[in-house]
Each structure stands twice: as C-alpha cells, then as structure tokens.
C-alpha cells in the first residue's frame, strides 16, 4: 500500500494506492496516514478510486485517521466503489464524511453521491 499526496486549491488529496483496506492492512494504512498528514492543517480528501474492498477494520482505520488530524480539520472522501459505499451506508458513516463522485466534485464541493 502507498499513499500519494497532492495539494490542489489548498486541499490535500490523498490517493490510496491499494485495492483493499482491510484487517490485514489497517495498521499500515493508519501509519501511512499519520506520517502523510502529520502537521498538515487544512482540508483532506481521501481518493478511494482504486479501493475495491473495505471491511470494518479499514473503516475504523479511516475514522482513526480522521480523528488524528489537527482538530476541526475536515476529511472528505471521493471516488468510492460499491463495497465502500455499502460499508459507509450500513454503518451510517456516510453522515459523518461527505462522499463525492470524484476528485473534481470534491474540489468544487459539489453534489454528494
């Protein structure tokens, strides 16, 4: 797993280069998120375009990374697939995170999916 950071319009876009965020990779994900966002103050968008599967451990790792951000920093999510959407919906985490269709919609803060 890798995370590639990109800053566009004062927003830190983090593209997750992995097909799964699951129990086997949750710790690595949290560590990578911590080192990538350490000291950053501003909005963060997680680009999950490549992520095909997430389980409850992966979701917990995303929540943990969100809570570890500088207080009151926003973390939004974009480019989610079917399984990711299902997990966020069933756990009601879609009411915590704004989920956008793609990076462009996230940057424009357009309509949510």
């Amino acid at each position: 797993m890798e995370i590639t950071p990109d800053i566009i319009n004062n927003t830190l876009i983090l593209k997750i280069l992995a097909t799964r965020i699951d129990a086997a990779s949750a710790v690595q994900f949290k560590d990578l998120m911590r080192s990538t966002t350490d000291g950053y103050s501003g909005r963060v968008v997680l680009d999950l375009e490549l992520v095909e599967f997430i389980d409850s451990s992966g979701l917990g790792a995303i929540v943990s990374a969100y809570k570890a951000l500088v207080p009151r920093n926003r973390m939004d999510i974009c480019s989610t697939g079917e399984v990711v959407n299902t997990v966020f919906r069933l756990t009601r985490m879609d009411s915590i995170f704004a989920i956008y269709e793609d990076v462009e919609h996230a940057l424009n803060e357009g309509e949510l999916i």
Partner: peptide, 20 residues
C-alpha cells in the same frame, strides 16, 4: 452517538453482519 469526540473506531463489523 456519532459526535466527533465519541466517534467509534471499532464495532462496525457486527452492524455490517446484522444488516446483510
């Protein structure tokens, strides 16, 4: 309780299982 300070980082699995 889904307020920021009390946002759970675990326990989602049984939600998913019971829903599906």
């Amino acid at each position: 309780d889904t307020s920021f300070d009390n946002l759970p980082e675990g326990g989602f699995g049984w939600h998913i299982i019971s829903a599906l």
